[in-house]
Design a protein around this nucleic acid. Structure first.
Lengths: 206, 206
DNA sequence: ATCATAATGGCACTGAGTGTCGAAGGAGGA
DNA sequence: TCCTCCTTCGACACTCAGTGCCATTATGAT
């Protein structure tokens, strides 16, 4: 959904193309180069021209791999959303709605041990760099929509009714609060943080 | 807090300046001109140059009244925040926390009858134009902070602990959900919508 | 009239993002 | 081998937001 039709026909250049000039780089390589530059000089201090030069491509070509500098940071966000939607839809009806939401969100954020540090760096950018904080809202609206659709299906109303909207916004809010707490504390566990935040929500924030 | 030191020394040119060349326009006038143009052609289709020309000032001068095109839409947001902070701090201790939050948020959004349409247009821009949706996050973080500070004071913890953060994020989420519902329905009442949304939150989103 | 002061606006610059178009570089067929 | 097709590449030029710099302008005070 969020995916751009990047050169090579897929997200990476791994699949051998059949026709035409082969892509000279890949999204994965661009991300690697860019995230390194961001870590060294900062996001705002790194221009697209810098990234392109470091990756050995032209500035114009960068925008054929990503529609903007911001989008590069998000990785495969869309794929995760699809997973969450599927998992929520498969929840047995006897599980209470908010409990299903909590489980779904926690599962959405499950990351393999070896990718924890990378995830931390990405989230640090997303929640720390003001340009990206702003942009995140647009990304997260799709996230909220997944939740709202699930709640709407459960309660037999439309996704744009008040209750599904409130749950979507609040579940996201709780998740972001957990992200912030996780980034703030050094050795904390993201899953536990999320679970706790969503439990607070389900208990009426008391 | 959000206020820029605009020409004239204040938010408007009403207070006669003491020295130097008098401002050639005011924030209020710029807002009027700009919001009219936004309504006619759309936000993204209206350049700062257009606004400046319509207001009879230079492009460069526009940026002395507002730091960006986005900031123009928000009016006196900062003043409202200070009110909410004060009102929350003055809440009697016997009022439950979430009830105080609900009352505070509803009060924050109280608008005089004659300004309802203008408010609707502003909110429509803020929640409808993607550039502004993105920017809103930054504004709303101050809003969340006011709530989080109150909850922290009530529960005797720090504003960056999990509970205050969750309440801040969720109260904002509920409020935004209410805004969306209000904009969506024609003759709905914003205060009632907000009250309902925050009641849902306090009831654990069930 | 002259001076101090503050707003104005023109100019030039950076940086994101976009349209266009010719060139490059592979695969497959003649 | 050479030609053709197809796709990516990258250069150029453009719009627009935002910023630094600085001469100009309009006022009140002396």
């Amino acid at each position: 959904m969020t995916d751009l039709v990047a050169p090579g026909g897929g997200a990476r250049a791994e699949r051998s193309h059949r026709l035409g000039r082969p892509p000279s780089t890949s999204r994965a390589e661009l991300e690697e180069v860019a995230l390194r530059l961001f870590a060294e000089r900062g996001f705002d201090e790194t221009s697209v021209e810098d990234i392109a030069a470091a990756a050995g491509i032209g500035r114009r070509t960068f925008f054929r791999y990503y529609p903007s500098k911001l989008d590069l940071v998000w990785g495969d966000f869309g794929a995760g959303l699809d997973d969450m939607r599927t998992r929520l839809a498969a929840t047995p009806p006897e599980v209470p709605t908010m409990q299903a939401v909590r489980a779904g969100v926690v599962e959405f954020n499950r990351i393999p041990q070896e990718k924890v540090e990378q995830h931390r760096r990405r989230l640090g950018l997303i929640l720390g760099v003001s340009t990206l904080v702003a942009n995140s809202t647009l990304r997260f609206s799709q996230w909220r929509e997944v939740i709202a659709e699930f709640v709407a299906a459960r309660t037999g109303c439309r996704p744009d009714d008040l209750l599904p909207r409130v749950v979507g916004h609040c579940a996201l809010g709780a998740a972001v609060a957990a992200y912030e707490g996780w980034l703030q504390g050094a050795g904390t566990d993201l899953a536990a943080m999320l679970d706790e935040a969503l439990r607070l929500l389900a208990d009426g924030c008391t």
